[in-house]
């Protein structure tokens, strides 16, 4: 593990922590963006160019903007008076610890299952493309169908609002 990895890890974790700890919602969204950027850089550090750039393009370019729009359009940018922290934080802690434990177990179990390779696996854009339209074409099509349904749903929601004039 190089120094760069630790630096990126610190940036990502700091971004993630700031996302849950900051009080102003827009600040939280921006901190989440920092965490996304840190993750993207971690992907790049692992030589996974496609995943890294897709992370930036999708998460910073679209998801972060979506969050920000949602906050601004729903009057969410005003601070609630009684604090932003939920009273049931103990329950949240338990759930978070459980999820973390399962993920950690999966990762640790996965490491022992995969035979250790000396050369790092190369995943070029071409390989990813071939895998997507070759072996994983069915999942790809299912996801495409799902997204199309979501788009149509969004259009229907918008149409309905327009059809009933106030």
């Amino acid at each position: 593990m190089s120094a760069i990895f630790y630096l990126l890890a610190v940036i990502t974790l700091a971004g993630g922590l700031a996302t849950v700890l900051l009080k102003q919602l827009v600040h939280c969204a921006l901190a989440a963006t920092v965490a996304f950027a840190g993750l993207a850089l971690l992907f790049l550090q692992l030589d996974a160019q496609f995943a890294g750039f897709a992370q930036i393009l999708v998460y910073i370019g679209a998801v972060a903007i979506l969050i920000v729009f949602a906050i601004l359009l729903t009057h969410g940018s005003h601070m609630p008076k009684d604090g932003v922290f939920s009273r049931s934080w103990a329950l949240g802690l338990v759930i978070a610890a459980g999820v973390f434990a399962i993920l950690g177990w999966a990762v640790l179990a996965g490491i022992s299952a995969v035979p250790r390779q000396n050369a790092p696996p190369s995943a070029t854009v071409r390989d990813i493309g071939e895998a997507l339209v070759g072996r994983y074409v069915l999942p790809l099509e299912i996801v495409a169908l799902l997204l199309t349904a979501a788009t149509i749903g969004a259009v229907v929601v918008a149409m309905h609002e327009k059809a009933s004039p106030r």
Binding site: F53, I56, L57, G61
Partner: peptide, 12 residues
């Protein structure tokens, strides 16, 4: 892809 990723970041 890199170019477009950087373009997306300018929006923010």
């Amino acid at each position: 892809l890199f170019f477009f990723a950087m373009g997306a970041a300018t929006e923010l």
